[in-house]
C-alpha cells in the first residue's frame, strides 16, 4: 500500500469517526473547523527549464525581474495566495490531538508583470498556481482554563495542483502548465479561543515543505512547490462539548 492510499484511508476512517454516535468517543472530543487566510509567498522559485534555456534565468521568479532605463517594465512580485478549507479533529485524553483536513489554495495577487527577454525586448510574464491538500497531523493540545486551547501538531499532507507560467515577447513565446502531486511535510501552531462552551475562534500558522518530482509539459520541465507559510483565521465547533464541561478543566 503506498502512502497516498494510507492518507486516503485515514481520511475515510476519520470521516466515519465524525459520523459515529458520541458514546463511542468517551475518551475524545470531536470538532469541526473551517478556516481561511493568506499565503504571503506562494510557489517557491517557480523555475523551469524554458526560463533557464530561453530567458537565461536559473532561479525563476527570484531572478525574472530585469529593468533598464527607457523601457517600461513592471515588477513581478511573488504570488500572494488565498487559502481556505475545513478540518475534523479529535482531542484525545484532553491533551493529544489528531486531525485531518482539506484545503484549497490559489494565487490571487502578484506573479504578473513585464520584464526583458535576452534581446532586451519587453516580455510579458505570468505565473499562477492553485492546489488542494489533505493534511493528516497529530500533536499536543494544551487547554488553558476553560477558554483557550493551544495546539502544536505535525504530519504529512497529500497535495496536488497546477503551476502555470507564460512568457511572451517579440523573441520569446513560451507557455506551460505543470500538474502533479507530492507529500509535503506540515507543521502547525494554532490557538482556539472559546466564545462559548462549544464554539471557538481560531488562528493558525502552518508551514508546508515539499514539492513534486520534475514534471514535463511539452518541451518544458518544472516542479510544483508547496513550500511556504499559511496564516488562517477560522471557527471550530466541538460536537461533544456538553459531555466535557470546560469548567472542570480549570
Amino acid at each position: 500500500m503506498n502512502i497516498q492510499k494510507i492518507i486516503k484511508s485515514a481520511f475515510i476512517v476519520i470521516l466515519i469517526a465524525a459520523a459515529c454516535p458520541a458514546p463511542i468517543f468517551a475518551f475524545a472530543e470531536r470538532s469541526w473547523a473551517f478556516q481561511a487566510g493568506m499565503i504571503p509567498a506562494m510557489g517557491g522559485g517557480m523555475s523551469s527549464y524554458e526560463q533557464s534555456a530561453r530567458i537565461g534565468v536559473d532561479n525563476g521568479i527570484y531572478g525574472i525581474n530585469r529593468s533598464e532605463k527607457g523601457k517600461s517594465t513592471k515588477n513581478i512580485d511573488q504570488p500572494v495566495g488565498f487559502t481556505g478549507g475545513g478540518e475534523f479533529k479529535l482531542v484525545l485524553f484532553n491533551y493529544y490531538m489528531a486531525r485531518v483536513g482539506a484545503n484549497y489554495s490559489r494565487s490571487i495577487y502578484g506573479g504578473t508583470g513585464k520584464s526583458l527577454d535576452p534581446a532586451g525586448n519587453i516580455m510579458k510574464v505570468e505565473y499562477s498556481l492553485w492546489y488542494y491538500d489533505i493534511p493528516l497531523m497529530a500533536g499536543i493540545s494544551i487547554p488553558f482554563w476553560k477558554d483557550v486551547r493551544i495546539t502544536l501538531s505535525g504530519g504529512l499532507a497529500y497535495a496536488s495542483g497546477t503551476y502555470s507560467n507564460s512568457f511572451k515577447s517579440d523573441a520569446v513565446n513560451s507557455k506551460a502548465a505543470f500538474s502533479g502531486w507530492a507529500l509535503p511535510r506540515v507543521i502547525s501552531l494554532s490557538g482556539e479561543y472559546f466564545i462559548n462552551y462549544d464554539i471557538a475562534a481560531t488562528t493558525a500558522i502552518s508551514y508546508y515543505e515539499g514539492s513534486t518530482k520534475v514534471i514535463k509539459n511539452r518541451a518544458d520541465y518544472a516542479v510544483l512547490d508547496f513550500t511556504g507559510y499559511r496564516f488562517t483565521f477560522g471557527v471550530s465547533y466541538y460536537m461533544d462539548a456538553d459531555k466535557s464541561d470546560r469548567k472542570k478543566q480549570q
Binding site: 488553558f144 483557550v148 490557538g191 479561543y193 488562528t203 483565521f233
Partner: peptide
C-alpha cells in the same frame, strides 16, 4: 487573536 495563558500572560 489573543489566547490568555491563565493569569501569567498571553499567546
Amino acid at each position: 487573536i489573543n489566547f490568555r495563558i491563565r493569569e501569567r500572560g498571553k499567546f
